[in-house]
Amino acid sequence: MSYLDVLAPSFSFTSPEAFAAQDDNWYADTPIGPVTVRYAEASELLRDKRFDHGGADFLRANGVTSGPIYDWWVPMIVNHDGADHRRLRGLVARAFTPRMVESLRPFIHARAVQLADEIEDRGSVEFVDAFANRLPLAVMCELLGVPAEDYDEFSQWSADIGLVFGLANGGDTAARVERAVAGLDAYVAGLMDRKAARPGGGDVISVLLAAMAEDGTASRDEVRNLLVTLVFGAHDNTRHQFSNSIVTFAEHPDQWMRLRADPSLAGSAVEECMRWRPSAGALIRRASADLTFHGLDVPEGMIFTTAVATAQRDPRAYPGGRVFDIAARYDAPLLQFGAGPHYCLGSALARTELTEALPLLAARFGPPELPAEPLPWRPALGTFGPESLPVSFARV
Protein backbone atom coordinates (compact mmCIF):
# COMPACT_ATOMS: atom_id res chain seq x y z
CA MET A 1 0.00 0.00 0.00
CA SER A 2 1.28 3.45 -0.87
CA TYR A 3 2.27 5.69 2.04
CA LEU A 4 1.90 9.48 1.91
CA ASP A 5 3.45 11.67 4.59
CA VAL A 6 0.67 14.25 4.55
CA LEU A 7 2.14 16.03 7.59
CA ALA A 8 5.42 16.84 5.85
CA PRO A 9 5.69 20.63 5.35
CA SER A 10 6.31 20.22 1.63
CA PHE A 11 3.62 17.61 0.97
CA SER A 12 1.10 18.30 -1.80
CA PHE A 13 -2.03 16.35 -2.73
CA THR A 14 -1.18 17.10 -6.37
CA SER A 15 2.39 15.82 -6.21
CA PRO A 16 3.68 12.97 -8.38
CA GLU A 17 3.70 10.69 -5.32
CA ALA A 18 0.00 11.41 -4.69
CA PHE A 19 -0.90 10.52 -8.28
CA ALA A 20 1.29 7.42 -8.10
CA ALA A 21 -0.72 6.38 -5.03
CA GLN A 22 -3.92 7.03 -6.98
CA ASP A 23 -2.70 4.81 -9.82
CA ASP A 24 -1.88 2.09 -7.27
CA ASN A 25 -5.11 1.90 -5.24
CA TRP A 26 -8.20 3.78 -4.09
CA TYR A 27 -6.61 4.79 -0.80
CA ALA A 28 -3.17 5.35 0.73
CA ASP A 29 -1.84 5.03 4.26
CA THR A 30 -0.73 8.19 6.09
CA PRO A 31 0.35 9.23 9.61
CA ILE A 32 -3.27 10.22 10.35
CA GLY A 33 -5.02 7.18 8.87
CA PRO A 34 -6.30 6.21 5.41
CA VAL A 35 -6.72 8.82 2.68
CA THR A 36 -9.02 8.24 -0.30
CA VAL A 37 -7.24 9.30 -3.49
CA ARG A 38 -9.61 8.11 -6.23
CA TYR A 39 -12.75 9.98 -7.22
CA ALA A 40 -15.32 7.16 -7.16
CA GLU A 41 -14.49 5.99 -3.65
CA ALA A 42 -14.08 9.57 -2.37
CA SER A 43 -17.49 10.55 -3.74
CA GLU A 44 -19.08 7.43 -2.30
CA LEU A 45 -17.50 7.97 1.11
CA LEU A 46 -18.77 11.58 1.29
CA ARG A 47 -22.32 10.28 0.70
CA ASP A 48 -22.10 7.17 2.87
CA LYS A 49 -24.36 7.64 5.91
CA ARG A 50 -22.11 5.35 7.95
CA PHE A 51 -19.57 8.19 8.02
CA ASP A 52 -20.08 11.54 9.73
CA HIS A 53 -18.02 14.72 10.11
CA GLY A 54 -16.04 13.55 13.09
CA GLY A 55 -17.63 15.53 15.90
CA ALA A 56 -15.74 15.34 19.17
CA ASP A 57 -13.71 12.33 17.96
CA PHE A 58 -11.94 14.46 15.35
CA LEU A 59 -10.94 17.01 17.98
CA ARG A 60 -9.89 14.38 20.53
CA ALA A 61 -7.67 12.77 17.89
CA ASN A 62 -5.93 16.15 17.69
CA GLY A 63 -5.66 16.73 21.43
CA VAL A 64 -8.61 19.12 21.79
CA THR A 65 -11.10 18.06 24.50
CA SER A 66 -12.47 21.40 25.73
CA GLY A 67 -12.34 25.14 25.13
CA PRO A 68 -13.57 27.49 22.38
CA ILE A 69 -12.75 25.15 19.47
CA TYR A 70 -14.57 22.25 21.11
CA ASP A 71 -17.59 24.40 22.02
CA TRP A 72 -17.87 25.64 18.42
CA TRP A 73 -17.04 22.45 16.52
CA VAL A 74 -19.12 19.83 18.31
CA PRO A 75 -22.54 21.60 17.96
CA MET A 76 -21.74 22.73 14.37
CA ILE A 77 -24.42 22.06 11.75
CA VAL A 78 -22.24 19.51 9.91
CA ASN A 79 -22.10 17.41 13.09
CA HIS A 80 -25.89 17.04 13.07
CA ASP A 81 -27.78 14.55 10.95
CA GLY A 82 -31.40 13.63 10.32
CA ALA A 83 -34.12 15.90 11.69
CA ASP A 84 -31.72 18.19 13.57
CA HIS A 85 -29.66 18.79 10.45
CA ARG A 86 -32.75 19.46 8.33
CA ARG A 87 -34.02 21.94 10.94
CA LEU A 88 -30.77 23.93 11.03
CA ARG A 89 -30.16 23.75 7.30
CA GLY A 90 -33.71 24.93 6.66
CA LEU A 91 -33.08 27.93 8.89
CA VAL A 92 -29.94 28.94 7.01
CA ALA A 93 -31.73 28.40 3.69
CA ARG A 94 -34.25 31.08 4.62
CA ALA A 95 -31.51 33.70 4.48
CA PHE A 96 -29.09 32.12 2.02
CA THR A 97 -31.43 31.96 -0.98
CA PRO A 98 -30.56 32.03 -4.70
CA ARG A 99 -32.33 35.40 -4.88
CA MET A 100 -30.11 36.76 -2.11
CA VAL A 101 -26.96 35.52 -3.85
CA GLU A 102 -28.06 37.05 -7.16
CA SER A 103 -28.87 40.34 -5.44
CA LEU A 104 -25.23 40.57 -4.37
CA ARG A 105 -23.92 40.36 -7.94
CA PRO A 106 -23.86 44.17 -8.55
CA PHE A 107 -22.05 44.67 -5.22
CA ILE A 108 -19.53 41.94 -6.10
CA HIS A 109 -18.90 43.41 -9.55
CA ALA A 110 -18.50 46.98 -8.26
CA ARG A 111 -16.07 45.92 -5.53
CA ALA A 112 -14.08 43.79 -8.00
CA VAL A 113 -13.78 46.80 -10.34
CA GLN A 114 -12.60 48.98 -7.45
CA LEU A 115 -9.94 46.44 -6.43
CA ALA A 116 -8.83 45.97 -10.05
CA ASP A 117 -8.43 49.76 -10.36
CA GLU A 118 -6.10 49.71 -7.35
CA ILE A 119 -4.09 46.85 -8.85
CA GLU A 120 -3.76 48.74 -12.14
CA ASP A 121 -2.32 51.74 -10.31
CA ARG A 122 0.41 49.56 -8.81
CA GLY A 123 1.05 46.79 -11.35
CA SER A 124 2.81 44.48 -8.89
CA VAL A 125 0.83 43.54 -5.77
CA GLU A 126 0.55 41.03 -2.97
CA PHE A 127 -2.59 39.45 -4.40
CA VAL A 128 -3.96 37.92 -1.19
CA ASP A 129 -4.09 41.32 0.49
CA ALA A 130 -4.96 43.31 -2.65
CA PHE A 131 -7.81 41.15 -3.93
CA ALA A 132 -8.22 37.52 -2.82
CA ASN A 133 -8.92 38.41 0.80
CA ARG A 134 -10.66 41.75 0.31
CA LEU A 135 -13.40 40.76 -2.14
CA PRO A 136 -14.92 37.78 -0.26
CA LEU A 137 -14.38 39.63 3.04
CA ALA A 138 -16.39 42.59 1.74
CA VAL A 139 -19.12 40.25 0.49
CA MET A 140 -19.29 38.37 3.79
CA CYS A 141 -19.39 41.61 5.77
CA GLU A 142 -22.13 42.92 3.48
CA LEU A 143 -24.09 39.72 4.16
CA LEU A 144 -23.73 40.03 7.92
CA GLY A 145 -23.89 43.79 8.23
CA VAL A 146 -20.33 44.14 9.59
CA PRO A 147 -19.21 47.81 9.52
CA ALA A 148 -16.14 48.64 7.42
CA GLU A 149 -14.09 49.75 10.43
CA ASP A 150 -14.18 46.17 11.75
CA TYR A 151 -12.96 44.52 8.52
CA ASP A 152 -9.31 44.06 9.52
CA GLU A 153 -9.98 42.35 12.85
CA PHE A 154 -12.76 40.27 11.33
CA SER A 155 -10.45 39.26 8.47
CA GLN A 156 -7.74 37.84 10.74
CA TRP A 157 -10.20 35.71 12.67
CA SER A 158 -11.81 34.47 9.48
CA ALA A 159 -8.43 33.53 8.02
CA ASP A 160 -7.25 31.59 11.06
CA ILE A 161 -10.46 29.66 11.72
CA GLY A 162 -9.91 27.78 8.44
CA LEU A 163 -6.86 26.11 9.98
CA VAL A 164 -9.14 23.83 12.03
CA PHE A 165 -8.85 20.97 9.53
CA GLY A 166 -5.08 21.18 9.87
CA LEU A 167 -4.86 20.70 13.65
CA ALA A 168 -2.70 17.63 13.03
CA ASN A 169 0.01 19.95 11.69
CA GLY A 170 0.78 21.01 15.26
CA GLY A 171 2.80 24.15 16.03
CA ASP A 172 0.66 27.16 16.84
CA THR A 173 -2.27 25.93 14.73
CA ALA A 174 -4.59 25.14 17.67
CA ALA A 175 -3.80 28.46 19.38
CA ARG A 176 -4.59 30.43 16.21
CA VAL A 177 -7.87 28.58 15.68
CA GLU A 178 -8.83 29.06 19.33
CA ARG A 179 -8.21 32.82 19.17
CA ALA A 180 -10.21 33.02 15.94
CA VAL A 181 -13.17 31.07 17.29
CA ALA A 182 -13.28 33.04 20.53
CA GLY A 183 -12.99 36.36 18.69
CA LEU A 184 -15.65 35.54 16.11
CA ASP A 185 -18.00 34.08 18.71
CA ALA A 186 -17.89 37.23 20.84
CA TYR A 187 -18.10 39.54 17.84
CA VAL A 188 -21.06 37.72 16.29
CA ALA A 189 -22.86 37.72 19.66
CA GLY A 190 -22.45 41.50 19.78
CA LEU A 191 -23.75 41.87 16.22
CA MET A 192 -26.79 39.76 17.12
CA ASP A 193 -27.53 42.07 20.06
CA ARG A 194 -27.30 45.17 17.86
CA LYS A 195 -29.49 43.63 15.14
CA ALA A 196 -32.06 42.47 17.69
CA ALA A 197 -32.30 46.02 19.03
CA ARG A 198 -33.12 47.28 15.52
CA PRO A 199 -35.12 44.47 13.87
CA GLY A 200 -36.18 44.41 10.24
CA GLY A 201 -32.88 44.53 8.34
CA GLY A 202 -32.25 42.48 5.22
CA ASP A 203 -28.87 41.05 6.25
CA VAL A 204 -28.43 37.39 7.13
CA ILE A 205 -28.28 37.96 10.89
CA SER A 206 -31.54 39.94 10.88
CA VAL A 207 -33.29 37.29 8.80
CA LEU A 208 -32.12 34.48 11.10
CA LEU A 209 -33.12 36.38 14.23
CA ALA A 210 -36.56 37.05 12.78
CA ALA A 211 -37.01 33.37 11.96
CA MET A 212 -35.85 32.40 15.44
CA ALA A 213 -38.35 34.79 17.04
CA GLU A 214 -41.17 33.76 14.73
CA ASP A 215 -41.25 30.02 15.27
CA GLY A 216 -38.48 29.11 17.70
CA THR A 217 -36.73 27.00 15.04
CA ALA A 218 -33.37 27.40 16.74
CA SER A 219 -31.91 28.72 19.96
CA ARG A 220 -29.74 31.82 20.19
CA ASP A 221 -26.65 29.65 20.73
CA GLU A 222 -27.46 27.64 17.60
CA VAL A 223 -27.87 30.80 15.51
CA ARG A 224 -24.57 32.18 16.80
CA ASN A 225 -22.84 28.89 15.95
CA LEU A 226 -24.41 28.91 12.48
CA LEU A 227 -23.11 32.42 11.84
CA VAL A 228 -19.56 31.65 12.96
CA THR A 229 -19.64 28.56 10.74
CA LEU A 230 -20.93 30.64 7.83
CA VAL A 231 -17.92 32.95 8.17
CA PHE A 232 -15.65 29.91 8.33
CA GLY A 233 -17.06 28.49 5.10
CA ALA A 234 -17.77 31.53 2.99
CA HIS A 235 -14.75 33.82 3.43
CA ASP A 236 -11.62 31.77 4.03
CA ASN A 237 -12.33 29.09 1.41
CA THR A 238 -13.17 31.67 -1.26
CA ARG A 239 -10.11 33.83 -0.63
CA HIS A 240 -7.85 30.81 -1.05
CA GLN A 241 -9.74 29.76 -4.17
CA PHE A 242 -9.03 33.17 -5.71
CA SER A 243 -5.31 32.82 -4.94
CA ASN A 244 -5.19 29.23 -6.15
CA SER A 245 -6.82 30.31 -9.41
CA ILE A 246 -4.26 33.06 -10.00
CA VAL A 247 -1.40 30.63 -9.35
CA THR A 248 -2.95 28.19 -11.80
CA PHE A 249 -3.35 30.84 -14.51
CA ALA A 250 0.26 31.96 -13.94
CA GLU A 251 1.25 28.37 -14.71
CA HIS A 252 -1.06 28.34 -17.77
CA PRO A 253 -0.92 31.83 -19.32
CA ASP A 254 -2.44 30.55 -22.57
CA GLN A 255 -5.63 29.71 -20.65
CA TRP A 256 -5.73 33.24 -19.19
CA MET A 257 -5.55 34.70 -22.69
CA ARG A 258 -8.25 32.28 -23.77
CA LEU A 259 -10.55 33.59 -21.03
CA ARG A 260 -9.64 37.15 -21.98
CA ALA A 261 -10.61 36.48 -25.61
CA ASP A 262 -13.83 34.66 -24.70
CA PRO A 263 -15.49 35.83 -21.43
CA SER A 264 -18.33 33.37 -22.08
CA LEU A 265 -15.91 30.72 -20.76
CA ALA A 266 -16.11 32.28 -17.28
CA GLY A 267 -18.38 29.59 -15.84
CA SER A 268 -16.35 26.65 -17.09
CA ALA A 269 -13.10 28.45 -16.18
CA VAL A 270 -14.25 28.77 -12.56
CA GLU A 271 -15.23 25.10 -12.41
CA GLU A 272 -11.86 24.10 -13.86
CA CYS A 273 -9.94 26.29 -11.40
CA MET A 274 -11.81 24.70 -8.50
CA ARG A 275 -11.24 21.24 -9.92
CA TRP A 276 -7.54 21.79 -10.56
CA ARG A 277 -6.51 23.43 -7.30
CA PRO A 278 -9.39 23.45 -4.78
CA SER A 279 -9.16 25.49 -1.60
CA ALA A 280 -10.77 22.57 0.25
CA GLY A 281 -7.97 20.20 -0.71
CA ALA A 282 -8.97 17.56 1.85
CA LEU A 283 -12.16 16.74 3.78
CA ILE A 284 -12.48 14.54 6.85
CA ARG A 285 -15.06 11.93 7.76
CA ARG A 286 -15.37 9.54 10.75
CA ALA A 287 -16.71 5.99 10.80
CA SER A 288 -19.78 6.03 13.06
CA ALA A 289 -19.68 2.22 13.52
CA ASP A 290 -17.49 -0.77 12.71
CA LEU A 291 -17.83 -1.28 8.97
CA THR A 292 -16.20 -2.51 5.77
CA PHE A 293 -15.58 -0.05 2.95
CA HIS A 294 -14.35 -1.46 -0.38
CA GLY A 295 -12.68 -4.40 1.34
CA LEU A 296 -11.09 -2.31 4.10
CA ASP A 297 -12.15 -3.10 7.67
CA VAL A 298 -12.84 0.23 9.37
CA PRO A 299 -13.27 0.39 13.16
CA GLU A 300 -15.73 2.82 14.70
CA GLY A 301 -14.11 6.21 15.23
CA MET A 302 -11.51 5.89 12.48
CA ILE A 303 -10.94 9.24 10.71
CA PHE A 304 -10.84 9.11 6.92
CA THR A 305 -9.37 11.96 4.91
CA THR A 306 -10.71 12.51 1.41
CA ALA A 307 -7.97 13.88 -0.84
CA VAL A 308 -10.20 16.21 -2.86
CA ALA A 309 -7.31 17.78 -4.78
CA THR A 310 -6.05 14.35 -5.87
CA ALA A 311 -9.46 12.86 -6.61
CA GLN A 312 -10.47 15.83 -8.78
CA ARG A 313 -7.68 14.99 -11.20
CA ASP A 314 -8.52 11.28 -11.33
CA PRO A 315 -8.64 10.37 -15.04
CA ARG A 316 -11.21 7.66 -14.25
CA ALA A 317 -13.71 10.44 -13.43
CA TYR A 318 -12.24 13.26 -15.52
CA PRO A 319 -10.91 11.90 -18.82
CA GLY A 320 -7.83 13.94 -19.63
CA GLY A 321 -8.17 15.52 -16.19
CA ARG A 322 -4.46 15.83 -15.51
CA VAL A 323 -4.44 18.73 -17.98
CA PHE A 324 -5.83 22.18 -17.09
CA ASP A 325 -8.36 23.26 -19.72
CA ILE A 326 -10.90 26.05 -19.03
CA ALA A 327 -13.15 24.85 -21.85
CA ALA A 328 -13.35 21.27 -20.56
CA ARG A 329 -16.73 19.85 -19.58
CA TYR A 330 -16.96 16.91 -17.18
CA ASP A 331 -19.88 14.90 -15.89
CA ALA A 332 -18.35 14.25 -12.45
CA PRO A 333 -19.39 16.93 -9.90
CA LEU A 334 -16.69 18.63 -7.86
CA LEU A 335 -16.03 17.22 -4.40
CA GLN A 336 -14.70 20.31 -2.65
CA PHE A 337 -18.16 21.44 -1.52
CA GLY A 338 -18.94 18.02 -0.07
CA ALA A 339 -21.86 15.88 -1.18
CA GLY A 340 -25.31 14.70 -0.17
CA PRO A 341 -27.33 16.41 2.59
CA HIS A 342 -24.26 18.34 3.79
CA TYR A 343 -23.46 19.92 0.42
CA CYS A 344 -22.13 23.43 1.07
CA LEU A 345 -24.86 26.09 1.06
CA GLY A 346 -22.26 28.74 0.19
CA SER A 347 -21.14 27.13 -3.07
CA ALA A 348 -23.38 29.39 -5.19
CA LEU A 349 -21.96 32.52 -3.57
CA ALA A 350 -18.37 31.37 -4.11
CA ARG A 351 -19.09 30.61 -7.76
CA THR A 352 -20.74 34.00 -8.22
CA GLU A 353 -17.73 35.85 -6.79
CA LEU A 354 -15.26 33.92 -8.94
CA THR A 355 -17.38 34.17 -12.08
CA GLU A 356 -17.69 37.94 -11.72
CA ALA A 357 -14.06 38.60 -10.83
CA LEU A 358 -11.84 36.30 -12.91
CA PRO A 359 -13.03 37.40 -16.38
CA LEU A 360 -12.88 41.03 -15.21
CA LEU A 361 -9.22 40.61 -14.22
CA ALA A 362 -8.45 38.80 -17.48
CA ALA A 363 -10.03 41.64 -19.46
CA ARG A 364 -7.98 44.26 -17.60
CA PHE A 365 -4.58 42.60 -17.36
CA GLY A 366 -2.19 40.26 -19.05
CA PRO A 367 -1.41 36.86 -17.53
CA PRO A 368 -0.22 36.93 -13.91
CA GLU A 369 3.46 36.35 -13.29
CA LEU A 370 4.87 34.85 -10.08
CA PRO A 371 8.24 35.52 -8.39
CA ALA A 372 11.10 33.09 -8.87
CA GLU A 373 11.20 32.09 -5.19
CA PRO A 374 8.76 29.44 -3.90
CA LEU A 375 5.42 30.59 -2.54
CA PRO A 376 4.59 30.12 1.17
CA TRP A 377 1.78 27.54 1.03
CA ARG A 378 -0.49 26.55 3.86
CA PRO A 379 -0.15 22.90 4.91
CA ALA A 380 -1.95 20.43 2.64
CA LEU A 381 -4.40 19.50 5.42
CA GLY A 382 -7.04 22.17 5.97
CA THR A 383 -8.11 25.09 3.81
CA PHE A 384 -5.35 25.23 1.23
CA GLY A 385 -3.70 28.12 -0.60
CA PRO A 386 -0.70 30.47 -0.49
CA GLU A 387 -0.31 32.57 2.66
CA SER A 388 0.92 35.40 0.43
CA LEU A 389 1.03 35.80 -3.33
CA PRO A 390 3.35 38.42 -4.88
CA VAL A 391 2.19 38.79 -8.46
CA SER A 392 2.71 41.09 -11.44
CA PHE A 393 0.08 41.79 -14.07
CA ALA A 394 1.19 43.12 -17.45
CA ARG A 395 -0.90 45.92 -18.94
CA VAL A 396 -2.28 44.94 -22.34
Rank of each mutant, 00 (worst) to 15 (best):
G320D: 12
Q312V: 08
T306A: 15
P319F: 01
A327K: 02
R322V: 04
G301P: 12
V323I: 11
G320S: 04
R322Q: 10
D314V: 08
E300C: 14
A311H: 04
R322P: 02
E300H: 12
F324G: 02
P315E: 15
M302F: 09
G320L: 01
T310G: 13
P299Q: 08
V298K: 05
G295E: 10
M302I: 09
Q312N: 07
A317Y: 04
V323R: 08
M302Q: 15
A307L: 06
D297N: 14
G301A: 12
A327D: 12
G321N: 00
F324A: 01
M302D: 14
Y318Q: 02
I303N: 09
I326W: 01
A327L: 06
F304T: 10
G321K: 00
V308E: 00
A327R: 01
R329E: 13
V323Q: 03
R322S: 04
L296N: 06
F324C: 05
D297F: 00
T306L: 15
M302W: 03
I326N: 00
T305D: 10
R316T: 15
Y318W: 14
M302P: 07
V298E: 08
T305G: 07
R322A: 08
A309Y: 04
P315M: 04
A307I: 05
G295K: 06
D314N: 05
I326Q: 08
T310F: 03
A309F: 09
P319N: 06
T306F: 10
I326Y: 03
R322H: 05
A317T: 02
E300D: 10
R313G: 00
G295C: 09
Q312A: 07
I303D: 12
R329A: 15
A311K: 08
T310M: 02
G321W: 04
L296G: 09
P319Q: 00
P315K: 02
F304K: 07
F304P: 09
A317I: 12
